[in-house]
Simulated assay, not measured.
Amino acid sequence: MKQFIVFLFAISVMACSGGGDPAPAPIPQPPTINVADLVKKVWSASSAQWDGVAKYDKSSTSNVVQGYSQYKLDLSTAGSVKLTEFDGKVFTGNYSVATDGKTLTLSSLTSAEGAPTGTGGTITFTILTTPTATTLSLQQTAAYVKASSAIVKLALVNP
C-alpha cells in the first residue's frame, strides 16, 4: 500500500510540474528608431565646417561666416522644408529621409530668385549620427558653390 501511495505521489508531482522546464521569458527588443520622426523639428546651426575648416561656432564671437547665426532648417512639417541659408536667403521645397535613416534629401527647393546656387533645387546630406531630441549632424554629399565649393558639415540643434 505504501508503494502505491508513493507511486501516486510521484505521478502527481510530475503532472503538476508540466514535465519540463518552463518556456524562457521573451527578450525585449529595443525600439526601432525612426529617423524621419526624429528630424521632424526646426533646427539651427551650432557649428559649421567647410572641408573640415571651422567657419562658425555658436559659442564663438569671432566666426569666419557669421551668417550661420541665422541658418534654419525647418523640417517640422513632414515632407515640407523651409531652409534659411547662411546668406539669409529662404527656400522652400520638399524633404525625405532614406528608409535606412542615413540620407536627408531636400528637393524642389525654390524662392523668388530660384533654386540655391549650383544645386538644381536639390541638396543631399549624409546623416552622420542618429539624431537625438536636440541634435542633428549632417554633411553635404557634394561640394556647395555657396560655400566656396566645399563640403559642408553642420552640427544642428533644436533648442
Rank of each mutant, 00 (worst) to 15 (best):
K2T: 13
A25D: 11
L156N: 06
A48E: 02
V53T: 11
I27P: 00
V64R: 05
A98I: 14
G114D: 01
T92I: 10
N94S: 13
S12I: 13
V157L: 03
T32W: 04
A143G: 02
Q3S: 11
V97P: 02
T130A: 03
L154Q: 12
N63L: 05
A150S: 15
G120V: 01
A98R: 02
Q70E: 15
L73F: 03
F9E: 10
A25M: 11
N158M: 00
S44M: 08
Y68F: 15
K82F: 06
Y95D: 06
S62D: 14
Q3L: 13
P116K: 00
Q66H: 10
L83S: 03
F91M: 00
E113R: 08
K153W: 09
T124A: 05
T110N: 07
A150F: 12
F7T: 10
I151L: 12
K153N: 05
G101W: 01
L104K: 00
G19Q: 07
I33E: 10
A45T: 13
S148D: 12
V152Q: 03
S137P: 05
S69C: 12
S17I: 06
G93Q: 04
S137A: 13
G121R: 04
Q3H: 11
G93A: 01
I151N: 09
F7N: 11
G118P: 01
Q70L: 14
S149V: 13
L109D: 06
A98K: 08
G79K: 04
D51H: 01
T119H: 08
T103F: 03
P28W: 08
G88Q: 01
A112M: 06
V157S: 07
A54W: 06
T134C: 00
T77N: 11
L8F: 11
P116R: 01
S111W: 11
A25P: 02
I151Q: 08
K55Y: 14
Q70T: 14
Q49K: 14
S17E: 08
A15H: 02
V53D: 00
G67Y: 03
L8R: 05
A115M: 03
Y144K: 03
S62P: 02
L106P: 04
G93D: 05
F86W: 06
T122Q: 12
G20V: 10
I127E: 04
V90E: 02
S59F: 12
G67H: 10
S96D: 14
S60I: 07
L104N: 06
S96H: 08
A143V: 06
A54Y: 14
L83W: 12
K153G: 01
F125G: 04
A54E: 12
T99S: 15
F7S: 12
F7R: 12
A133S: 12
G93V: 06
Q70N: 14
P159Y: 07
A150G: 07
T77M: 09
Q139H: 07
V90I: 13
A147R: 04
P159R: 03
V35M: 04
Y68A: 01
